[in-house]
Computed example of a mutant assay.
Amino acid sequence: MLQGRKFQFRPTLTIFVALALGILIWLGTWQVHRLEWKTDLITKVESRLDAAPIPFAEAIARADAGEDMEYTPVKIMGEPRSEVAPVFGSLDAKAGIYLFVPYETAAIGTVYVNLGFVPQQVEVPILPSMGMSEVTGLFRRAEVPTPPASWFSPKGKSVDGLWFVRDPMQFAGEAKIETVPYYMDQLSVPGREWPKGGTTRIEFNNRHLEYALTWYGLALTLVGVWLVFSLQPAKGDN
């Protein structure tokens, strides 16, 4: 196919191809980094879920020291307060809210606990039973949406009082109480239908290798197209 053809450099075509090639390679490399991050995340979650819960105060100290404590089983002994923060969300394709309730503890002050999901059509008591009780769950950092998702994410609260981001500092700021920048996802509670605990997402899609190969494949195809358009029949050929 290349016999009788001569390479002819095309500056304009080459510039546009180089720009597109750079973008495709960047996208492929980004997916490789995402693959490494997702693999580490899955390994971390699987290794932590069966561990015995540690005091929330210990988890905070380790997190503040730079250790990644996400999804670590934790526990507190505290009493629920009345400043409930409903966060808009869904579960199994059903719209509803996640109930965030501040618990007053002796060890670390106020800690927000995500008691779990309540469907839109279900009415439940706003607060769990008052009084001191032990709560166990998974240690979580405040939710911080990142681009491009953050470009389209609503901010603050809806007109009917639902929050859009799981951020205990925002909840506490409105309630005028002190809290820590971490919260707990409560585990499932036997005998309690709603709020439904144990709803932390612990299964993650991992198709980043497929995406990376797609971007790199497009980059290779683009180089092939550039070569085809740059090879012209030699003079004298018909």
Rank of each mutant, 00 (worst) to 15 (best):
E123W: 06
E70Q: 12
A142W: 04
V74I: 08
G161F: 03
N205S: 12
V118N: 05
T12H: 01
K235S: 06
P53D: 15
L213Y: 02
I76T: 06
S90T: 13
H33G: 13
T43S: 13
S188A: 14
L2K: 05
E123D: 11
L13T: 06
T136K: 13
P125Q: 08
I108A: 10
P53K: 13
P181T: 03
R192Q: 12
R5Q: 10
R34W: 07
F171L: 04
W226P: 00
G109F: 02
F88A: 14
T136D: 02
V189W: 03
W151M: 06
K75S: 13
S188C: 03
R10Q: 05
P190R: 04
T200P: 06
V165G: 02
E67V: 01
W163K: 11
S47Y: 04
L115M: 11
P148Q: 10
W30M: 10
G116F: 10
V122K: 12
V122Y: 03
N114H: 09
R140Y: 01
L187R: 05
T199I: 09
L220N: 01
Q31M: 09
Q170L: 07
G161W: 03
N114R: 14
W226Y: 08
T110M: 14
L19E: 03
G89M: 08
T199W: 01
T179V: 09
E70C: 07
W151N: 04
V32K: 06
R201L: 13
A172Q: 02
G224C: 02
P128Y: 14
V111I: 15
S129E: 11
V225D: 00
P168M: 06
P154L: 12
M169Y: 03
N206T: 07
P11E: 05
K6H: 04
P55I: 05
L222W: 01
L115Y: 07
V159K: 13
